[in-house]
Design a protein around this nucleic acid. Structure first.
Length: 668
DNA sequence: GGTTAGAGTATCTTC
DNA sequence: TACTCTAACC
């Protein structure tokens, strides 16, 4: 009775705050449901309220699984659910596909013949591994580019290609070695985090059943971005109770290069049959003009489900377009308008500067710094991928997993300690011959003095160093302390100083390392972490893109279009709307169609709530050469009456308050 | 056998 | 610009 009245009052509340389609999507809890949600149609709102609704209906939080695509989306969903249901969310799993896979593997990977405490390799680790393999197989490294190989390994691993393409017999050979080495090194790549759980479920139906009965309600966000394998996991988990809601927008599918497949929507309809479908088409985010432009653009795509976003809001400003002389002028343009809009009352965090490539952020960053406007770059050179951080992390990873040869290779002579390439080679070869790990081989070499009087002492020092810190790092709550001591003992600062003529960069790098200590010690101190240990910390790091900073700060956001998906800004600056970038040359070349690029452009446009400024430089420096750029063909798909070209000089002349900026340009 | 300087070349988007 | 590889040097 009590539960019934609680649910009634929630329903009454929901009816007031949601539109009809949203409401239906929330209360339709049982059975398979496909929610096609256009940009800005309140999709996260639906998911979070649905979770609230389920809980009020009496579903135990631990029976709910919500999976999204990015850390950022998962984090946001967690926060919003927390606001709605408070502390009740205990036991609920809201996570990304990759960490879901990791969670499953952490429990049962032994059943697959893998060992516990594995390392997780990111792309750069995998590339190193592939380079070694190419070298071992004596293949020409100009033909076998590790960057491309990573992609091919992924295709093979994810079964996207059953037969090996190219008819190149070396590709399967490389793959075989790649897999073999990963296993020897006790390491998984990102694809393994998705693939191995499936193998586990196939091999051990009892484990699958456990999860099937645990997660009675499953919600999938950003469904259009799931890969075939990710879909397979969800299908395995949900196929019996069929209580699965997937939310997605085929128009925002921008990850096909990573294996995402919007035909998963068709698969879902087929596998789960008799699904309900709800379309959310009312947009609450953008002005009419922005929305109309977005609709006009996306309508040029042939393969899409019909959907038409509408709003009952105002039509607002036109979309602005600015043609800059070069990248610097483009950055000046962005800053001029940020300043101008701030004078009108906009705050720093109302602005989002979007670009296709992370490297485009640099000129804007410089200008922001000059003008003393606080900003943050999301995603760019990811913190945990910075060389100095990777060096230290490699020490940590090796201390945690002595079989991790990629990490060993990175640290064995970093900083330089007299262990050169040929020594490393002979260690690795001997290890392979004796079927032993390199570290065991080092131990033997040191003991027997095999490498002679010159190298042996160096090797011994390294061995003793590792042994010493291995002991320290496993003491409870001693990770950050250990790492701090380690960095000092190996004189990492000295290494940095020796490598550069620019002491400022050393300072910056050491600051980053300090931030790493902070991150570790935060992890150790957090009472939510029951048993802080180096394995768990490293796993978290591998899957995170450093978003420990709060979003609430008043800072201008710089980010790629890809990472902007799901976010919104009052004012969006979309820079570099030029041929070659959007649509990107490489993508056109690889896929032969501009549809995904158009979707990307669509995502960018629909991030804007009130104002959208698009710009591109007529000239761009690339590898020290001036390249002429043409405006993106997508611009011509926007109806002319929605576009307004900006002439910045004219504009400035009208506004005396900006003579300051003009003066600044004069200085150049 | 290891280190260093200088030449040569290029990684787009994310977990 | 920044990173990787090669060749000459210690």
């Amino acid at each position: 009775m009590i539960a019934a009245s609680k649910i009634d009052s929630l329903k009454n509340h929901l009816i007031k705050i949601l539109n009809k389609e949203q409401f239906n999507a929330v209360v339709e809890t049982d059975g398979p449901l496909l929610i096609l949600a256009g940009a800005g149609s309140g999709k996260t709102r639906v998911i979070t309220h649905k979770i609230q609704y389920l809980i009020d209906k009496g579903v135990a939080p631990s029976g709910i699984l919500a999976v999204t695509f990015t850390n950022k989306a998962a984090k946001e969903m967690k926060e919003r659910v927390q606001k709605l249901v408070g502390k009740q969310k205990k036991g609920m799993v809201i996570t990304t596909f990759h960490s879901l896979g990791l969670q499953i593997l952490n429990k049962d990977i032994a059943s697959l013949g893998y060992r516990d405490k594995f390392s997780i390799y990111d792309d750069s680790d995998c590339m190193k591994l592939l380079k070694d393999i190419i070298h071992d197989l004596k293949l020409p490294d100009d033909v076998y580019d590790p960057y491309e190989l990573i992609f091919k390994m992924g295709l093979i691993k994810m079964n996207l290609k059953n037969t090996f393409f190219d008819d190149d017999p070396n590709i399967p050979k490389i793959y075989e070695n790649y897999q073999k080495n990963l296993k020897i090194y006790n390491a998984l790549d990102f694809n393994d985090l998705i693939k191995l759980p499936i193998e586990l479920f196939e091999m051990r139906p009892d484990i699958l059943e456990k999860y099937q009965s645990k997660w009675k309600y499953i919600l999938v966000d950003e469904y259009q971005d799931t890969s075939l394998m990710q879909y397979k996991i969800m299908k395995m988990l949900a196929i019996h109770h069929r209580n699965i809601s997937v939310v997605g927008d085929d128009d925002q599918s921008i990850y096909s290069w990573r294996g995402a497949n919007s035909t998963n929507i068709t698969l879902f309809e087929k596998d789960f049959f008799k699904i309900k479908e709800i379309k959310l088409e009312q947009n609450y985010r953008s002005t009419g003009n922005i929305l109309n432009a977005a609709n006009a653009i996306i309508n040029n795509n042939q393969s899409r489900r019909s959907k038409n976003l509408w709003t009952d809001g105002e039509s607002g400003d036109k979309l602005y377009l600015y043609e800059a002389l070069d990248e610097e002028a483009e950055a000046d343009f962005v800053l001029t308008y940020i300043t101008r809009l701030k004078n009108m009352g906009y705050k720093n965090n109302d602005f989002g500067v979007l670009f296709r490539m992370n490297s485009q952020s640099r000129p804007i960053e410089e200008k922001l710094r000059d003008c003393n406007i606080p900003y943050k770059v999301i995603g760019a050179t990811k913190f945990f991928e910075r060389p100095e951080i990777k060096d230290i992390l490699s020490y940590m990873r090796f201390l945690a997993n002595f079989e991790d040869e990629v990490s060993l290779n990175r640290i064995i002579n970093t900083p330089k300690r007299g262990i050169g390439n040929s020594t490393i080679m002979s260690i690795m070869e001997h290890a392979k011959e004796t079927n032993s790990s390199s570290y065991n081989t080092i131990k033997d070499f040191v003991r027997l003095g095999i490498l002679g009087n010159k190298v042996t002492p160096y090797l011994e020092d390294f061995y003793n160093l590792i042994e010493k810190y291995r002991e320290m790092i496993f003491k409870p709550k001693n990770i950050s302390n250990t790492i701090m001591k380690l960095v000092e003992e190996i004189d990492y600062r000295g290494k940095l100083l020796a490598e550069t003529k620019n002491p400022k960069s050393v300072q910056f790098k050491m600051k980053n390392i300090n931030q790493l200590y902070q991150s570790i010690s935060n992890y150790e101190k957090n009472p939510d972490n029951m048993n802080p240990n180096i394995y768990e910390y490293l796993q978290r790091v591998s899957l995170s893109t450093r978003d420990d900073d709060n979003d609430d700060k008043e800072e201008v956001c710089l980010l790629s279009i890809h990472s902007a998906k799901g976010l919104e800004y009052k004012v969006v600056f979309l820079v570099g709307v030029e041929e070659g970038l959007i649509p990107h040359d490489k993508t056109l070349e690889e896929t032969g169609t501009d549809e995904e690029e158009r979707r990307l452009f669509y995502v960018a446009v629909t991030r804007a709530r009130e104002k959208l400024y698009m710009s591109y430089p007529k000239e761009r420096m690339k590898y020290n050469e001036v390249i002429h750029k043409n405006i993106s063909c997508f611009i011509s798909e926007i109806p002319e009456e929605l576009l307004e070209k900006i002439n910045i000089e004219e504009n400035l002349a009208q506004e005396n308050d900006l003579s300051l900026l003009l003066e600044k340009w004069g200085k150049k």
